[in-house]
Write a protein that binds this DNA or RNA. Structure first.
Lengths: 210, 210, 210, 210
DNA sequence: AATGAATGAGAGTTCATTCAT
DNA sequence: TATGAATGAACTCTCATTCAT
């Protein structure tokens, strides 16, 4: 829409902007978009209210940046992890493990990104689509090589996304004996195994499920 | 928390309450929880502002009721559909089909329920859990009868939930050439087939995936 | 642009709205549009801030109403006064006298209306035009009857408007030994006589100036 | 009030100051005093924000300078034009013509000066008074020489000011089929003739109006 | 001479909720 | 049962001005 705010010209400016972005991530995660206020964000960053508008057009503007940033970071973590695998199934395991680890460490991922839907039109779709695209190319290649069964890569990719999303929410964000809104736990190993088993059976080449 | 508002005593009161609930569902779906205001809800219901507080404690109070109501309706539609099936796989197909049909007809389901997370602590978890419980009992029974493979029913149930959720979002809510926020489409038949194929392979008894 | 705010339904509402309008006139006159604030207006009216928005869309909205109101009131005073005259010249004298009297009693007329230019596009032009139209019809009729000389009524009407405006500003608003922004005085009789003499000579039928 | 900012010592400084003054005139004319901001002015001048305060004490300070400047320029144009005339009536024609021409070319004259009233107490009165003084001395001399009728020069001078002001506003600033705030036109010749006719009749020596 | 960063008071406006009728 | 009026805290955002570099 509007031109992005000009990049800070001084080192001091760059640091201030960084502090604001980090503070915004924190506050959005803790309070949600609507209860987060500019006052709270600037207080958390230790700057004056007006300073905020030196670096961002609006509350939505920072929110979008925070979402972009989180998206970049999860995808980086997942790609990094799965790139060392030698076959699709191992790659999937590694990617999922990385995703759940990231979730446990940065619950902000869920708490912020899932609000995008109601804040910034199209932002959530963009977030999901970017992750799904990673899956899709992997799956398409694996199918061509006969590593997985004959399933449409796009639908399968979205299914994987859905499984990861809900399992992460159920067992990492909500834990098992955890109060709503409370701290996260890590994914119990047996749940991880069962989830991977479900996925592997779905993807296995014809005649190979165990 | 607080005692629920007393049930209306007169028929007129019951009708007014009903109008408010319907109006709230509409307004929440169109505008989102935060941009929905009591004024807009009461205007849509054709009553005065004060009247609202005769039937609901607060904005969150109606929201919770609307969520409960949608949850009831979706589960009813799914159970109804799957109850006529003679085996687990057919039941799953019917249940999913009903879910997607409901979604296409009542996009409010997504647009409202997914906000619950940021509005009413625990409400989303409750919503998901109730649906998942339906799956779980079905899956546990099917496993005992050897109709499906040896998978943990709880994890599988959540996985199914996640797949339904994301496929519905991707193809029903967002359609394919659809602008964000635009109208819904129905799920394309081939996507449904592929999704079911994915699920059936994951659930199939050992040695049976095709 | 937007629909006008609904008329108050109760007597209490009508009184509150009236108090707000009067307070706005006062505050705009004292402080000017920009330094007038909703807080000051509502305090002057003795109501809460939010109450203001029950009756007006915005600060500009009240401003427009105040200007309209003042316009109605001056024109009423001028017409009332000049309607009792039997010829054009007397009518002019009476109208001008009424205008200066109104100005002395309601300096808000100048202090508010002249800001309209910078606040509400077209509002000042509308104000002037309405007054000028009164002059114009009178002058046109008088010319047809030979009571005044052969001058274009439109230009003459605007010229009269300009004379009234500046004389009022110079001698009523600014007085003679008066500090800027201070209280108004009434127009000195000899200034009034000289101004009328100027006008009468300009309008006199050919061959009649004394 | 405060001491004026010291005159720039270097040529570069003088140029910067000049650019700021010109930018301020432009921005004040386009946006009005209140919507003009220091940021916009400095951007238009192509200098940093802080630079502004090297040459001016405050926003009001530049505004005053801009008004002074316009006043000087308009009076210069009028005096220049009327100085070549051999009698009062011709001098008046030439002066008015110059005034309208200046207005058409520099609508900033109106758009800025008329705001002075609400920005800088006494500034508008000073502006008008200076122009009026020019008229007054001319008229007093002409009356002594019998070139014009027996009218008080001060009142007549203000009347002339008022006529010029309003005719300029009505036909130059607002044009005839022009939207509020739109571009200016030049004064239609017949309007000029009628206005001069009005003035000449008012000023004509006794027994001479035609 | 010049500048970009920083500030905080204050602006207009919204809205869930209460209350008198 | 129903209502319109009233409230005030809280929100996002702007801007003239100061200051360290």
């Amino acid at each position: 829409m509007t031109d992005p705010k000009p990049v800070p010209r001084t080192t001091k400016g760059t640091r201030t902007r960084g502090r604001l972005l980090a503070a915004a991530e924190q506050v959005f995660a803790d309070l949600g978009f609507h209860d987060a206020s500019i006052v709270k964000i600037t207080e958390a960053a230790g700057v004056g209210q007006g300073t905020f508008y030196l670096y961002f057009h609006s509350k939505i503007d920072v929110f979008d940046e925070v979402v972009e940033d989180l998206n970049r970071r999860v995808r980086h973590a997942m790609i990094e992890a799965s790139s060392r695998a030698t076959n699709r199934i191992d790659a999937e395991r590694a990617g999922f493990a990385a995703f759940f680890a990231f979730t446990a460490e940065h619950p902000a991922l869920y708490r912020i990104v899932r609000q995008a839907e109601f804040v910034s039109p199209g932002a959530l779709r963009k977030h999901y689509t970017r992750i799904v695209e990673g899956y899709m190319t992997g799956l398409a290649k694996a199918r061509a090589e006969g590593q997985i069964g004959d399933i449409d890569p796009e639908v399968a990719a979205w299914a994987l996304m859905g499984i990861g999303e809900i399992v992460g929410m159920r067992w990492v964000l909500w834990g098992d004996d955890v109060q709503p809104g409370g701290p996260t736990s890590t994914l119990p190993p047996d749940v991880f195994e069962q989830a991977m088993r479900f996925i592997e059976r779905a993807l296995a080449p014809e005649g190979e499920n165990r």
